[in-house]
Design a protein around this nucleic acid. Structure first.
Lengths: 220, 220
DNA sequence: AATAATTTTTAGACTTGTCTAAAATAATTT
DNA sequence: AAATTATTTTAGACAAGTCTAAAAATTATT
């Protein structure tokens, strides 16, 4: 069983490996808000425990084992975020620090029961996908509501919910249609409204609208 | 902010101070599953931070500040137990270790929201009383589950929960009825069973039974 | 009240995770 | 390709929390 500190390093490596394809000691140090020498120490320890492979001066990489464990930590983090927002009525922007603590609770049974209690959600309140108990992510082809997505990320509109005439008129007026490329620029928590960029123009939309527009992440 | 270890010591002192009126270093060491020398070290630290008062070789005691904090940890522990049993459907005997972890999560807001989400419960699944956000325990004039009461104190039975025929048969067999005078002689933590004196005779009852019998302190 | 037994504290060591400063290696520039 | 710069690692130190073994204080016994 890993310490919280070890888990945090593992998680940081996991998260960096999505954007960077070579993770340097300095990069990880910056991410972890620590010094390069501390990273080296920890990297040695994690490689001894075979969560990562490591060659001096040459860098490191998650092993299968490390990747699996990191996915489980991410799973816990995101499930707890869903709990905090859906059940305890926190705002989605308040929950990160609490989830950082909760993600280290050790009990597989707890995680699975929490997952069931929450209705096996596929995305957290920020729109990030939740790995299942085997570490498998939901297909990126799944649609979800516009108000649950990441900022500054391009999505494609895949559907709308409400079928009223008024709503279609609204969509038509602003040229919002299936296949449009859409990006959320800003979220306003006081009323859950969003500033979005749709194709080339910017606009604001209310929470009522954003919950009815379903999107899909653009896979490059 | 205290470390988990410091919080655990504080909680242990708090819990011991209910049964013992002088807490010795050795006693605390045994409770904490550690060595006397470690206890001395920690006791020094906690007294420097004024959570306890401490005189070498003379023992220690919680300060107001220490007692308040310990009550908040107990509050968190018991609220999480309610969550685990009521919402996630754990058995009451499975939840202790998980709650030991959850009780260290730092967020006053989380605790209060959890409390509301659970409907502001007054007792945990073991029947132990839950302090409110000010550290105040439910009034003694309120009916308690039998397993939450003080040892060697006379109570009157005010109600029973379960309405099954089997349960009433059991109560009748042992002449346990409304108004009976009842006293808990001993608690067995390993299974939460109790040795009780009911009117003039003694007997043992299981946790399942004790949680369903509600009593009230006899005020003379 | 002196001695023996017990309890508590101290002293020094070890582990984990961190740091600074210096040394080693790699990358870049001229 | 040699020199300069940047990155990474090592060496040694420190705080937290624990331990063992020895010393100090307290309590019990004769």
């Amino acid at each position: 069983m890993l310490s919280q500190s070890e888990e945090n390093y593992l998680k940081a490596i996991y998260s960096l490996s999505y954007t960077e394809d070579k993770i340097s000691t300095n990069l990880l140090a910056e991410k972890m808000n620590t010094k390069a020498s501390s990273v080296t120490d920890m990297v040695k320890k994690l490689s001894e425990k075979s969560y990562i492979t490591y060659l001096k001066y040459k860098g490191f990489e998650l092993t299968e084992k490390g990747s699996k464990l990191a996915a489980q930590i991410v799973r816990k983090h995101r499930l707890w975020e869903v709990f905090l927002v859906d059940k305890l009525k926190f705002g989605w922007e308040e929950v990160h620090d609490i989830a950082e603590q909760l993600e280290h609770i050790q009990s597989k049974q707890l995680t699975d029961k929490l997952d069931d209690f929450l209705g096996n959600p596929k995305f957290d309140p920020h729109g990030d996908p939740i790995p299942d108990k085997n570490g498998v992510y939901p297909s990126l082809k799944v649609s979800f509501p516009l108000n649950a997505i990441e900022l500054n990320t391009i999505y494609t509109i895949t559907g709308v919910e409400d079928g009223s005439m008024d709503f279609f008129q609204f969509l038509k007026r602003y040229e919002i249609g299936l296949g449009s490329e859409i990006k959320v620029l800003e979220k306003f928590p006081f009323d859950d409204s969003l500033r979005i960029q749709i194709d080339q123009s910017e606009m604001n939309i209310s929470a009522i609208v954003s919950k009815k527009i379903f999107v899909q992440k653009v896979i490059e």
